[in-house]
């Protein structure tokens, strides 16, 4: 079924079309929210909120962008809002970037430790770098679509991605340099 047809049916209350939209997009939306917020409950709230906004938007939906792009953008903006509120509550201007010294790579690092170290390093990335990395490297979006989601140019996205990858590669360097 074409996406526009599916959206029109979902807007009209067709339960099968609605279920198809949820099954297609919800796991990825949740994964992005979980990666950004590092909290399962908050990620669930954001996913539900993103779909509530989608249900409201569907009747007037105009296919200027792909539904997945629009939904990812809403999700990301909801995540930014929550992260901003958290920062205001804690008084921190920006979460500090750090690489856990306890997980500094060395010769003895096995694969599981590398995965764990990269998880921590991703969590510590600045928001926009984390978003770029999550969308492109983890969710498999193309640079163009990820740039649309983040409402930046492709060049800006590539710059964010490059900086994120540089920090992650640092974690993998055996000499830690």
């Amino acid at each position: 079924m074409h996406e526009a047809d599916q959206i029109a049916r979902a807007a009209a209350g067709d339960e099968r079309a609605q279920a198809a939209l949820v099954n297609t997009h919800m796991p990825r939306v949740y994964a992005v929210a979980k990666r950004m917020l590092k909290d399962a409950v908050e990620a669930e709230d954001v996913t539900q909120e993103a779909f509530i906004r989608a249900w409201k938007a569907l009747p007037d939906w105009e296919p200027r962008a792909k539904f997945s792009t629009w939904l990812h953008r809403v999700t990301l903006n909801l995540c930014y809002d929550r992260l901003r509120r958290k920062r205001e509550q804690t008084g921190a201007d920006e979460l500090p970037e750090r690489v856990d010294p306890g997980l500094r790579p060395d010769e003895a690092f096995d694969q599981a430790q590398k995965v764990q170290a990269i998880e921590i390093a991703i969590d510590d990335l600045p928001e926009r770098q984390k978003a770029a990395l999550t969308l492109c490297s983890l969710q498999g979006l193309g640079n163009k679509e990820a740039a649309e989601v983040m409402e930046v140019s492709v060049e800006a996205l590539e710059s964010l991605l490059s900086r994120a990858r540089r920090k992650l590669k640092y974690v993998l360097k055996p000499e830690g340099v």
């Binding site: 979902a10 807007a11 009209a12 209350g13 339960e15 609605q18 279920a19 949820v22 099954n23 919800m26 796991p27 949740y30 994964a31 979980k34 990666r35 399962a40 669930e44 996913t47 539900q48 779909f51 509530i52 249900w55 569907l58 009747p59």
Partner: peptide
């Protein structure tokens, strides 16, 4: 992989038009 929690899809669909 980050699996969504059980029942989330149903809760989302409950809000559907």
């Amino acid at each position: 992989e980050t699996d969504p929690p059980v029942g989330l899809a149903e809760r989302i669909l409950a809000d559907a038009p």
